[in-house]
Amino acid sequence: MMTGFARRLAGHLTRGLVMIWVVTTFTFVLIRLMPGDPVQVQIERNIAMGMPPDQAEAAAAVTYGFVPHGPMWKQYLEYMGGILRFDLGVSVESQGVPVADRVLGAMPWTVVLVLTGILVSFLIGVVLGVIAAIKRSTVVGHSLSIAGSLLHGVPPFVIGIILAALFTRQWRLFPSGGVYNADEVAPGLYFDFIGNVLYHAALPAAAYALATYGGWLLAMRSSVASVLGDDFLLAAELRGLTSLTRFRYLARNAILPLFTVLAISFGLVFGGSIFIERIFNYPGLGMLLFSSIGSRDYSMMSGAFLMITVAVIVANILADLLYSAIDPRVRRQA
């Protein structure tokens, strides 16, 4: 007999796998429909160098790891089979490098960046949102709301460019790129290295946080405002509960709906960090995707897309599990 939790998890995993399959199939087809084919270019270059067409194609196939002119379904089967073994093919651009290595290598940096960025943004947004809601008829409340809306409307890359110009050019307080300084620290789990990584991630993460905290602020403000109107807070007041307890009641109820959005945004940002990573020259997943699109690196693109898909789906599953863990109304349904 499965428990409610196990059944829920199994359902999520099944749906997640189906989603991954659908998305990978789509990317496979879409990428091959894009104009400009580097394999074709390579074959033509080989022919121009004097190879006969058959030999030119065979040479290209060796380089790219697949038969470019094989039927689509055959390529598809090979591709899907590869994914099952976590073999995402080899990069077209940097020849011979397995895509899986590049993607997995870029991933941790994006995770560091995104995690710091979102958490900082969420914390600032939620705290300011509570203040904005409680002081909503005062100057403080109004200014916070306006500041939230304004920054919320500015695209992340604009803020990124401004921050980069100020802090890496004007004042040179932060590094202008990279994930850590290899001259100063060697990778490892120790204080100096982690500090160096955070130092490199600080500016892009700050840009992300600045660009997004307004959304959290506005969401938290309206959530708090709606909970403030709930009868249970008046009831708590009439029962003589301390203001600290009443604030806890308020905060927990107000922040609940935001947790789902938070978990989902972790997934979304893997793809969305492209601009930030590009501006700050930060070699994460976004940069990888950006450069692979530029060079029509199919296998790299599919690999990055696959990673982003998986991240979104995992984040969604986590969001749902998290919600049922923190909200008794969902938890006790089963």
């Binding site: 709930d230 249970f232 009831a235 009439l238 009641y249 927990r252 609940l256 008794p328 109304r329």
Partner: peptide
């Protein structure tokens, strides 16, 4: 003080 039944006078999360 007792609220009417239709009002949610309890914290839904506790």
């Amino acid at each position: 003080y007792v609220f009417q039944a239709a009002q949610n006078s309890l914290n839904p999360l506790k």
